[in-house]
Design a binder for these strands. Structure first.
Length: 1035
RNA sequence: GCCCGGGUGGUGAAACCGGUAUACACGAAGGACUUAAAAUCCUUUGGACUUAUCCUCCGUGCGGGUUCGAGUCCCGCCCCGGGCACCA
């Protein structure tokens, strides 16, 4: 083999491009997913494409992860290092809004740019398996995941308060709220109550918490998760609530009860008052018993209106109002204690009510001081605690101690006291042990455009049917008029039509329809009225409409809607004499009496919950078009039609459609899952994707999208217009990477068995709580449904640090952004990689310094030069090459620990050693050194390593090579420096053989002139010998 | 307020289980090469005392303690970064 004598130029642009293309073309880093024998899933959190493209911080992380991956590859693992883009979501959408472009165009451009930049890292990404969350091929499975949640009862809708930015007119996620302000426009964020989709992550709180005991994650990460889940053990205790005057009597009857949660049941005897949250239902339930209700109501309203900002500012200044007229009974002391409403108690935690123990809780103490409430001490501080009684006036003891003034638990330590109290609570059926969590359900709704549409269709027909099946159908009572019966006109026909959509219809024939009497009809209608409920409908025709009003005028029953068709409600302009002459044989007198009967409109209004519809035809010969004006109904809709005369046809489609439409309007539609095979529900292209601030997402504006057929019944229905949270996209992407080739399912259980849990997961600490928790939850749920085998998704997690510039976070406005493109252009990716590795601890991050990068550039050039200088050595040989063994060992171990900075330092030491000894190496040694250098450099500077490897005459990639072995015997030097200490201070050193015995070492120490000087003739008290290190002489 | 991290030369940082504090760099100073500059190479580089590279003393945020010996362990503080924030 010929060796070049001249040193080639280090042309990083050429070299890096060459190898990057080769790796990708030859699929060197695309492992065989199905057959991998030693899988190593080397995952990094995928980036969400943002404004300026890939950030140097992303570069730092990705290349760090890659260094580990390449090392593992050389150790013989089938390393899978995938990459993708998390480009769906508010973050990306906001950026598009900011620059005034369509998100679709921005995404297309960003994708191209990001992948270009990611290629520049030179990482061993598997480019055959990329994932983009905004592509239908991906998000159809995100929707699939939603459907699984839905099917299993873990997805539900409820009204919830969300962050609302009044300036941007949009819902914000918690992360977009900085303190109390909008991340983008800095307006103060409000709370708005909207219907939202949730995932019941709280069902998994216990397991999510418990598994933290065994998963291999850094303790601080686990701690953050534990804090977020916020498990507390305690007890639930029932307090009776009584009317005050009765409370004085021992037999006071309880009118209600108040359940509290406490972590300190042992302080029950010290509970001297109670506090409930402003939202607590007790306030409304006992409205009539609370004497100062208006004052209470005023406080509650004010508290609920308070913005976050106000609450934060007022945090320490506690306010509240006593609920006068009612008292609670402390079950332990049997004493009556006052109940307060105060906003320092949160409705969302525990039961929204507390027993206040002012003697042993700071907050209760402060409140009690302010409102002069009794403070009863029930815990004795133990002797070890500070006995400083001085501070008693200012604060309280909230630690655990020994129970006092507490009857049967006196003298017990807190742990025991708790147990005893809980036993007692159980025995008396007034309480039990209880565990609560701070964790709330996961709100996955976003009223925005750029996300996967939630695959739900809202169907009212299905809702009606469901009501029928659940024996709660919408009931319709049809009341006919004068000289008719239950089946005349359109009554019988409409009955059947309404039954088709699931209503239960009654069309009774009333007595004496030729001589109608209101009392008689009322009586006949009573049994039907009894069947009706708050969702029911009454349709009255002609005199039947008067009968309807008449019936409700005397009833004590609430119904939903009333339709008065060709309504005969009493018309002062009616010419009865003329009618009597024309209607020979009819009892017009009876009709008149009924017609003109007085109505208690107030009562009728109370009984109709929803709307009243008056429908008449302008050409009706019997009904004056102005007749409705005498009606005093509050929620009235007038339908003035024509061509129907007195509505006596056998069929009337217009009437039917009107009635059905109005019945459906009042029905809460049923959420129907889109069938899996109909996925994806594609996000429709929309020119205007901006949020409007109506509380509904932009998709609601798209009628074509909204209007659809119900997948269950085929009827007209509407699509859900919320899209899902970006956290959902990223909660499962690691399952997709190994399965991107699968078209018919999101992932394959057998295949994933080999790859899960993810071997190494590295990402930002800012995602330590939410993203990791959500993906753990999703993984756990999928395991429960037998889609996966493993319960926890990430075997190992490491959070990386951030890169700053001059100590500050990089931002465009500060003008301190380091652009990776520029750096790569200037130095080449190998140099940038090495510098980023060297600048500091991977988990801590570091501060970018230009001179540091310059220094690394010099090292890389020295490395290059030194390597090729080895081509032409002619020394006699140095014999001892143990430096190679040491470097192999420490570089390998350091990379394994992600301690990259020291790995680079070891590399530098190796190069220093080589140049120091360059004259002395013989050719054989030089070859061995070159080979080792190429191999140990490979994970850190892969392109240079390939080039080295090639120059040594190898045809194949260096990443098919094994990490070199070292000889453990050579790690320890033949000799070492023995340190001699006197009283712990270093006084002398000797280079000695590694096998020196204790007595030899001790003797050497005592003979030392310097030791002798310090001894000054005295005999040492003691001599300590630490093998391989030192001798310490104690005087 | 509470809970985590972290404070080591002029700078980025090393330091295994309590055992030589400052590895490896950056910067700086001096020197070699050069007409000159860049690049490269060599030397020095925690502080004080000192003719001295010897010796001695001081030195890992501050104050104590344990130990033959403490950056490392314990107690009490200060500062910086991050998270949570009335969670009963």
């Amino acid at each position: 083999m010929k060796r070049k004598k001249t040193i080639p130029k280090y042309n990083f642009k050429k070299i890096e491009k060459k190898w990057q293309q080769k790796w990708e073309k030859e699929l060197i880093f695309s492992p065989n997913i199905k057959k991998a024998k030693k899988p190593f899933y080397n995952l990094m959190m995928f980036p969400y494409p943002s404004a300026e493209g890939l950030h140097i911080g992303g570069y730092f992380t990705f290349t760090g992860v890659d260094t580990l991956g390449r090392y593992k590859k050389m150790q013989g693992y089938d390393v899978f290092e995938p990459i993708g883009l998390d480009g769906f979501g508010i973050h990306s959408e906001n950026y598009a809004m900011k620059i005034g472009e369509h998100i679709k165009d921005v995404s297309r451009r960003t994708e191209k740019n990001f992948y270009r930049q990611l290629r520049l890292t030179g990482n061993m990404f598997d480019w055959t398996r990329t994932v983009e969350t905004y592509k239908p091929e991906y998000y159809q499975w995100t929707q699939w995941l939603f459907l699984q949640m839905f099917k299993n009862g873990l997805a539900y809708q409820k009204k919830a308060k969300v962050n609302w930015c009044p300036a941007c007119k949009t819902v914000l996620s918690d992360e977009q709220v900085i303190g109390t302000q909008c991340e983008r426009c800095e307006a103060v964020v409000e709370k708005k109550s909207l219907k939202q989709w949730f995932f019941k992550i709280t069902d998994y709180a216990e397991r999510l918490n418990k598994n933290l005991d065994w998963i291999d994650w850094p303790e601080d990460v686990k701690l953050s998760q534990r804090n977020w889940i916020g498990r507390s053990e305690g007890a639930e205790i029932k307090f009776k609530v009584q009317i005050e005057k009765l409370a004085n009597q021992p037999t006071g009857k309880s009118i209600n009860e108040l359940i509290v949660f406490t972590t300190r049941p042992d302080t029950l005897f010290g509970a001297t008052y109670m506090v409930i949250a402003p939202e607590h239902e007790l306030i409304k339930n006992l409205k009539s018993e609370i004497k100062n209700y208006s004052e209470v109501e005023k406080y509650v309203k004010k508290a609920l209106k308070k913005s976050e900002e106000e609450r934060l500012n007022e945090k320490k200044a506690k306010t509240g109002v006593e609920l006068k007229g009612i008292k609670a009974i402390n079950p332990a002391t049997n004493k009556k204690i006052p109940i307060f409403v105060a906003d320092y108690v949160l409705s969302g935690y525990g039961t929204g009510a507390i027993m206040a123990v002012p003697a042993h809780d700071e907050r209760d103490f402060e409140f009690a001081k302010k409102y002069n409430l009794p403070i009863r001490e029930v815990v004795k501080e133990e002797a070890s605690e500070t006995n400083d009684k001085q501070g008693q006036e200012e604060s309280c003891f909230s630690g655990e101690g020994i129970a006092i003034n507490s009857d049967f638990i006196n003298g017990l330590k807190a742990v025991e006291a708790k147990k005893e109290i809980i036993k007692w609570l159980r025995k008396n059926k007034i309480g039990q042990k209880k565990i609560t969590y701070k964790l709330r359900d996961w709100c996955i709704s976003r009223q925005r455009y750029w996300g996967p549409p939630i695959p739900i269709v809202w169907c009212k027909h299905c809702a009606l049917k469901q009501l029928k099946e659940s024996k709660k159908p919408v009931k319709v009572l049809i009341i006919h008029g004068f000289e008719a019966d239950g089946n005349s006109n359109w009554f019988g026909w409409l009955k059947k039509e309404l039954e088709k959509i699931g209503c239960e219809v009654y069309n009774p024939s009333l007595p004496n329809t030729l001589h109608p009497k209101s009392e008689e009809w009322r009586k006949a209608l009573q049994p039907y009225l009894k069947k009706l409920d708050e969702n029911s409908v009454i349709i009255g025709h002609s005199l039947g409409s008067k009968a309807t009003v008449d019936l409700l005028s005397a009833a004590d029953k609430k119904i939903k809607q009333v339709f008065l068709v060709a309504s005969a409600l009493g018309n002062p302009r009616r010419d009865w004499a003329k009618m009597k002459a024309e209607w020979i044989g009819s009892d017009v007198d009876a009709l008149k009496k009924f017609w003109e009967k007085k109505v208690d409109w107030k009562r009728v209004n109370e009984n109709i919950v929803g709307k009243t519809h008056i429908i008449f035809s302008e050409d009706d010969p019997h009904i004056d078009p102005e007749h409705y004006k005498i009606v005093k109904l509050e929620d009235l809709e007038i339908q003035r039609w024509s061509g129907h005369q007195h509505f006596v046809q056998f069929q009337n489609e217009k009437l039917r459609d009107y009635v059905i439409a109005r019945i459906l309007e009042e029905v809460r539609p049923l959420s129907v899952a889109v069938p899996e095979k109909e996925l994806p529900v594609k996000l429709p292209p929309m020119e205007d994707f901006l949020p409007e601030g109506t509380g509904k997402g932009p998709l609601a504006k798209n009628e074509k999208f909204v209007r659809t057929k119900c997948p269950a019944c085929g009827a007209e229905a509407e699509r859900e217009t919320d899209v899902s949270d970006a956290f959902l996209d990223s909660a499962w992407y690691f399952l997709r990477y190994p399965c991107t080739d699968l078209k018919s399912k999101p992932f394959d259980k057998t295949r994933l068995k080999n790859w899960l849990p993810v071997t190494s997961y590295i990402g930002g600490k800012e995602h330590v709580v939410l993203h990791l928790l959500y993906s753990r939850f999703v993984n756990m749920a999928l395991k429960d449904w037998n889609f996966l085998d493993n319960e926890e998704p990430y075997q190992k997690f490491v959070g990386h640090g951030l890169i700053t510039k001059d100590g500050a976070k990089m931002s465009k406005s500060k003008g301190n952004v380091i652009n990776p493109d520029e750096m790569v252009e200037k130095y080449g990716t190998d140099t940038v990689r090495l510098y980023l590795r060297f600048m500091g601890d991977f988990t801590q991050g570091g501060d970018w310094s230009d001179s540091g990068a310059e220094g690394m550039k010099r090292f890389v050039e020295r490395l290059w030069r030194t390597f090729f200088l080895l081509d032409s050595v002619s020394g006699v040989g140095v014999k001892n090459l143990s430096m190679l063994d040491k470097t192999i060992k420490s570089v390998g171990e350091d990379i394994e620990k992600l301690s990259f900075n020291t790995a680079v330092a070891r590399l530098m030491e190796l190069i220093n050693w080589i140049s120091d000894n360059l004259e002395n190496f013989n050719q054989k040694e030089a070859e061995k050194i070159q080979k080792t250098v190429a191999l140990v450099v490979a994970p850190l500077a892969p392109h240079i390593a390939e080039e080295f490897w090639l120059s040594l005459g190898n045809k194949k990639s260096i990443f098919g090579q094994a990490w070199p072995k070292y000889d453990p015997r050579k790690i320890v030097d033949e000799s070492f420096e023995l340190v001699i200490q006197v009283n712990g201070k270093v006084r002398d050193r000797f280079v000695v053989n590694k096998n020196i015995s204790e007595s030899e070492a001790t003797a050497l120490a005592l003979e030392s002139e310097k030791v002798q000087n310090h001894l000054a003739g005295k005999t040492p008290k003691k001599v300590i010998y630490i093998k391989g290190r030192l001798v310490s002489v104690v005087i």
